[in-house]
Structures are given as structure tokens and as C-alpha cells.
Amino acid sequence: MTLDINTIVEILSGFCLLIGSFLCISGGVGILRFPDFYTRMHAVGVTDTLAAGMILVGLMLQNPDALVVIKLLMILVMTLFINPTASHALAKAAFHNGLMPVLDDTEILNSKERNKTTDNDLEPK
């Protein structure tokens, strides 16, 4: 029995979609399970990079139309360029408003003063 090329591509596509789905759910579980804001951000990083990449690659393998593949590639590149910027902006905003990460060891950087001045910004108004 010989496997023709279409079957192989179909199987590859299904595999990519499966991995992507698993990573998506993992990221969703991670955002609920992790203890504080900064660690949750890493869980979101998983869904933004590899999960999105795997699902989009799986979709690319489904469709032989060149224009559709290029559009999917465009979405992938945009996701990869935009998401680090957004998460960096978010982390910077949180840090500058005095949200301190929960750490294993307690040697935190010496920013207690900054914490004091902006503590009331933490609560949503």
C-alpha cells in the first residue's frame, strides 16, 4: 500500500492542528493556574507564539490556493510582530504602576519607595 502525497499532507495538517489546540488549552489553563500577573503573562506567550503558529501552519496545509496561504502567512507574521510589543507595553505599565511580582526568594530590587507612591493606582477605578 502506498501513501499518496495528499494523504500525507492531510495527516500533517491534522497533527499541526492537534498540537495547536493542545497548546491553546494549555495557555488557557495556565492563565487560570499561575499565581500572579507576570507569570500569567508567560502562559499567554505560549498561546500567542507556538499555538497560533501551529494552527495557522495547519490551515496552510489544508488549502493549496497561493493567495490564501500568503494571507495566512501575513496573519502569522503580524501576530508574531505585534504580540511581543503588546505584552511588553502591558508589563511596563504594570511595573511602573508598582505591581510587584511574586518571587521565590525575597531579594527584590530596591523599589519600595516607588511602590509606596503609586500603590493606589493598582485598584481599577
Binding site: 507576570y38 507569570t39 503573562m41 508567560h42 506567550g45 505560549v46 507564539t49 507556538l50 508574531l80 504580540n83 511581543p84 510589543t85 505584552s87 511588553h88 508589563a91 511596563k92 511595573f95 511602573h96 511580582p101
Partner: peptide
């Protein structure tokens, strides 16, 4: 800084001069 941020597990929190503040999992 963006390469650090895009890798899951590390996030660049701040970039001042040539110093990067990084949070890691």
C-alpha cells in the same frame, strides 16, 4: 528586547539605556 519577550518564559519589563529589566518564569 523583543526577542526576549517573544520567547515564552521571559518578558522584558523595562528598557533604559543599555539595561534590560527581565522577568522570567
Amino acid at each position: 528586547a523583543n526577542s526576549i519577550t517573544i520567547t515564552p518564559g521571559t518578558v522584558t519589563v523595562d528598557l533604559v539605556g543599555d539595561r534590560l529589566t527581565v522577568h522570567a518564569l
